[in-house]
Nucleic acid binder design. Structure first.
Lengths: 148, 148
DNA sequence: GTAATACCTACAGCGACTGTAGCTTCAACT
DNA sequence: AGTTGAAGCTACAGTCGCTGTAGGTATTAC
């Protein structure tokens, strides 16, 4: 009765690569599926839904660790909503501060590029600003990675 | 006459870690400095300036590869400004599209969180939206990394 | 029967650092 | 002069979230 899916169909639906799904399984985010006689993975609706949750959360920028936590909460349906709310709210804050940082980058880049006259590098405003932070209006911030 | 700096002083000025500076040297972004009798790195004003350029560019979100290119252009002062301008303009575009993506994430997160009533997970709007992309207004985009 | 496609495992690589282990060197203080 | 603590050294593994590759097996379509 219940539908089954190949890894390729899952990847298609999740807008990700086949390897990504195997990776999620490897790190314990997706449960091991059954295997066919020929050793190929056979997914059920449950896997399908779980992958949907993961991919959608990724699109909203959640880390795999946060997703793992939210999935655990999801698996206990009588659990209070508070913790999920907290995770999402914290994430929202991080997204907002990333936006702010990117906006100040954008402003400074725009200013820099606008002042460039297209002459020689020796007189280039862009090079000049990059060489000299004092000419820049972007406040200093930590330079570290973030996820999409 | 000319000033010398230790790696610690450089790191301080560049708002980065000592290891980061050794890393930049390793990948050829900073030239090898002289060494003291005790094998410690001794930096000159030239290194100091170059690190300043790198760190400021990083704060504006340029990748190390773009920075490498801009440094090469910078090293030829009679070179036209055009290429620097192009690199910066492309980067600005990327920053702007990152802002847009983050803004739509922010909007959807806000919407999701606002609808949550703090009951049980079974009825949680956040979980619901995450489980079902159809409930979401964020258009699908590729989920990949970006730099600060 | 054959060819193309999809699947399998295992592992290396990306970017930009960061952390650790196990040393040596330097600067300051008694 | 000795000692202590901070700063420096090398070499290498780990982070995150995949992505790519090599070298094989299974399935599907014609």
């Amino acid at each position: 009765m219940s539908k089954h899916y190949t890894i390729g169909q899952m990847a298609n639906a999740g807008h990700c690569k086949v390897q990504t799904i195997r990776y999620y399984e490897q790190i314990g985010l997706l449960p091991h599926p059954m295997r066919s006689e020929g050793n190929q993975r056979i997914y059920t609706q449950t896997h399908w839904n779980r992958l949907g949750f993961i991919r959608h959360s990724r699109e909203l920028g959640f880390s795999l660790e946060r997703i793992r936590e939210m999935l655990a909460l999801n698996d206990d349906p009588s659990h209070s909503c508070e913790e999920v709310d907290l995770i999402a709210s914290k994430h929202l804050q991080q997204v907002e501060s990333k936006i702010k940082r990117l906006q100040s980058m954008r402003d400074e880049l725009t200013r820099m590029i606008g002042r460039c006259q297209g002459n020689q590098v020796a007189d280039c405003r862009i090079i000049e600003v990059l060489s000299n932070h004092a000419l820049c209006s972007v406040e200093r911030h930590s330079v570290d990675g973030d996820d999409d």
